[in-house]
């Protein structure tokens, strides 16, 4: 069984926000909910300061703080490494949300559901159809799932995640500069594993002991 992971090439990334918006469309996320975003910062002093760009998403940690915190087992690490939420088990206690050092979870309640992209003007046809196509359960916590439905559907057709569009996460597909590479961390010969080895991939907040499956190379 593979363990899915991602390498984000910060050197390539130009902070176009394609990942963020494609992700919102893929999962019909309401306003204010992001499963992908970009953090922009700066380090150093003029004139030798550097711009910092970090695209972030759920790290799908193998030792996830959220899984540890979840009192019901709704949040769990799947055998393929994806950290998923079973909305039938989630009671909405938000312990996971508070526990996540990366703050990658959102509590989906009526307030969130009621938000409109054009405030006060009603929901668009896209928002309405999204509630049918990709429904979220009220009072549960939602988060990036590495587009597991895409992965599963694709693999059923014999496609390879990370290589074939229809079996890869939406943020990987949209990236115009190929800054996102998806693949099997358990396979030492996969592109992701090799990049992590060669470019000394870094995980965010490694000190929390969460073992993220998302690596950054520079």
């Amino acid at each position: 069984m593979p363990r899915w992971g991602m390498v984000i090439d910060v050197k390539r990334c130009i902070a176009c926000w394609g990942c963020t918006i494609a992700c919102k469309e893929e999962h019909f996320l309401p306003p204010g909910v992001f499963w992908n975003r970009i953090l922009i910062g700066e380090t150093g002093k003029f004139p030798s300061s550097r711009k910092l760009i970090y695209p972030i998403l759920c790290n799908h940690c193998s030792d996830a703080a959220c899984v540890e915190a979840c009192p019901t087992g709704a949040t769990y690490v799947r055998v393929d490494g994806i950290v998923a939420v079973d909305d039938k088990k989630c009671v909405g206690c938000r312990a996971c949300l508070v526990s996540c050092p990366y703050q990658q979870r959102t509590y989906y309640d009526q307030t969130v559901k009621d938000r409109e992209y054009f405030p006060g003007q009603g929901k668009t046809a896209m928002e309405l159809i999204g509630e049918k196509l990709y429904p979220f359960k009220l009072g549960t916590v939602i988060k990036c799932n590495f587009c597991m439905e895409r992965l599963e559907e694709g693999m059923k057709k014999g496609l390879v995640p990370g290589r074939d569009e229809d079996a890869s996460p939406a943020c990987v597909n949209i990236c115009p500069v190929n800054a996102r590479i998806f693949g099997d961390l358990d396979d030492p010969d996969s592109v992701v594993s090799r990049l992590i080895m060669e470019k000394k991939g870094k995980q965010l907040k490694k000190e929390f002991g969460t073992e993220p499956a998302v690596y950054y190379i520079d």
């Binding site: 963020t20 668009t124 896209m126």
Partner: peptide, 17 residues
């Protein structure tokens, strides 16, 4: 890459506005 930038991906809203 077959990519699009963020504003390109966001173009849907031109229709839905």
């Amino acid at each position: 890459g077959a990519g699009l930038c963020g504003k390109g991906a966001a173009g849907l809203m031109y229709y839905h506005d």
